[in-house]
Write a protein that binds this DNA or RNA. Structure first.
Lengths: 251, 251
DNA sequence: TATTCTGAAGTTGTCAGACAACTTTGCGAA
DNA sequence: TTCGCAAAGTTGTCTGACAACTTCAGAATA
C-alpha cells in the first residue's frame, strides 16, 4: 500500500477515514474482489485506533462498497455508490445548478410518472381513489386558505404510484418526491396562490384523477404528461428540451 | 424504550443490530430529530458489547439515517433510505425471494426502458449508434463462441439510455443494470446458448437497434417492451402480472 | 421567587488489551 | 508431490479506561 491515503485529524475520525478509503478505492480503480490492507496496517497508516478503522469499514459495508471475511480480510464488493441511485443536486433552479440538469431529472420523472398514471388507471381500487381524493381535498382546502400544500401535493403523486399495485414504483415515486419537495414550494407559496399557479396545478391534478377514476389509461398518461410539462414551465424550465413536438403531441 | 427491538444472534452482529434499529425507527415512525436510546441502553437491550452498537450506529450514519452528537446522543436524521433509492434484494428468483417482487422490479425497469428507447430513437447521434453497434457486435461474437456477454448486454442497454442525451436516464439505467446483472447470466450461460435463449435475446436487441437507427419512436418503444416481456419469461416470471393485455397489445 | 453559575453525572469518541473464531501459510511426514 | 497439522495472521467481539462534550441539579445571588 505505497500510495495509501494520508490521514488528517478532523473531528469525526471514522467518517473521515471512510471517506478517504472510498476515495482511494476509486482512484486506484480497485476491482471487485480486490483486498484492502489489513486493519493493523490501516491503523498504522491513519494513526488511529483499531476501533476507528472498524467503524470506518462498517460505514463502507453499509454503502455496499466493501465486504469482510473473518480471518481473511476486507475486500472491495462494488464500486462506491454501486448499490443505490442518488440524484446529485438539490432540485430547484439556481445560479449554481444548471437548468438543463433539472430539466433532465424532470424527464426521468416523466418516464416513470406517465407510466405510473397509465397503470394506476388500469389497477386502482376504491381505497386508492379514496386516498387520492383525500389528498385532493386537502389541496383544495389549502387553495381556499392560501396555505401550504407541498406535502399533500407529494402525497397525491405517491397515491397514484401506489395505485399501480407495484411497491417498487411507489417507492421510487416516494424517493423522487422527496427530492422534488423544494420544487413544489413555489407552487404553494403565497405568491403561488396569488399568481394562480396553485389553482392551475390543482386543475391538472383533478384531470389526472378523473382519468384514473374512469379507468382511461391513455387519458391518464396524457394528463400526467401535461401536468409535468406545466410544472416544468412553472419552474422556468423548458420542457421542449425533453424532445420534440411529437412526444408533446400526445396531450 | 419499552417496544425496543428484540435481538437474535446471527453471525454479523453489527449488521443485524443496524437492520433491527432501522426497522424499529421505521415502525415507530420516529420523526427527524427524535433521540435514540443511549449506547448503554442499546447494549443492554441487544445483549452485545458497546463496540457492536457503535459499529451498527456507524452503519446507520453512513446511510444518512442517524446522526450523533458527542455527549448528547444519537438522533434520527432522516427516514431510512431517505436520500437514495435502493432495490431490496438480489434480482434472481429463488426460494427466498418472491417472484412477484422481481416481476415488480421488472415493471419499474419497463417504465424507464421503453421511454428511453423512444427518446433514443428521436435523439440518437451517429456516435450513439456506433456504441450500440459495438455492443451488438460483441454479443454476436459471444453467440458464435458460446461465451459470456452479460457485460455487453448491459452495455447495450446503457448505450440506449445514453442516446436519450439525458445523463440522469443513463445513470438510472446503469444503476438498474448493475442490479440486474445476475438476471442476465442465465441468458448468456452455456445452457442459455444451447437452449437458444441467447440467440433470441440478441434478435430482440437487433430489433430495438433497428427501430432506434430508423428514428422510429413507436417501434423502439414496442421493441423494448417486447424484449422485456421475453426477458421476464426467460426468467420464469409472468409478465402478465404487469397489467392486462391492453399494455401488451402495443407490441 | 427567579435567574445564574458551578460541579457532578451522563453520553459519545477514541484508545488499548484480551480472547474467540476463522483463514492462510509453512513445514514435516507419507 | 500431496496431505495434514500447527503456527501465524486476521477479523469479530468484549471489556476497561480516559478524553471531550452535554445535560442536569443544587447552591448562590439578585
Amino acid at each position: 500500500m505505497s500510495a495509501a491515503p494520508i490521514p488528517e485529524r478532523p473531528p469525526d475520525l471514522s467518517a473521515a477515514v471512510a471517506r478517504q478509503l472510498e476515495q482511494w478505492i476509486s482512484e486506484q480503480q480497485l476491482p471487485k474482489g480486490a483486498q484492502l490492507p489489513t486493519e493493523k496496517l490501516l491503523c498504522e497508516k491513519f494513526g488511529v485506533s483499531r476501533a476507528v478503522i472498524r467503524e470506518a469499514i462498517s460505514r463502507l459495508k453499509a454503502d455496499g462498497c466493501v465486504t469482510t471475511r473473518q480471518g481473511s480480510g476486507a475486500y472491495v464488493a462494488a464500486p462506491p455508490g454501486h448499490g443505490s441511485f442518488r440524484l446529485l443536486h438539490g432540485l430547484l433552479p439556481s445560479a449554481t445548478i444548471p437548468t438543463d440538469e433539472i430539466s433532465d431529472v424532470f424527464e426521468l420523472r416523466c418516464l416513470v410518472e406517465t407510466g405510473a398514471a397509465e397503470r394506476a388507471a388500469l389497477r386502482r381500487t376504491p381505497a386508492d381513489l379514496a386516498r387520492m381524493r383525500e389528498a385532493l381535498a386537502r389541496m383544495d382546502e389549502a387553495l381556499a386558505a392560501g396555505s401550504d400544500a407541498v406535502g399533500d401535493d407529494d402525497a397525491f403523486h405517491v397515491a397514484i404510484a401506489a395505485a399501480t399495485q407495484n411497491p417498487h414504483i411507489e417507492r421510487f415515486q416516494a424517493f423522487m418526491g422527496r427530492q422534488f419537495s423544494d420544487s413544489r414550494a413555489p407552487t404553494w407559496s403565497g405568491e403561488g396562490h396569488r399568481s394562480g399557479r396553485a389553482r392551475q396545478a390543482q386543475a391538472e391534478h383533478a384531470r389526472i384523477f378523473d382519468a384514473i377514476a374512469c379507468g382511461d389509461a391513455d387519458a391518464a398518461r396524457a394528463a400526467a404528461q401535461a401536468h409535468l410539462v406545466c410544472a416544468a414551465r412553472r419552474l422556468g424550465l423548458d420542457p421542449l428540451r425533453w424532445g420534440n413536438e411529437r412526444l408533446e403531441g400526445t396531450q
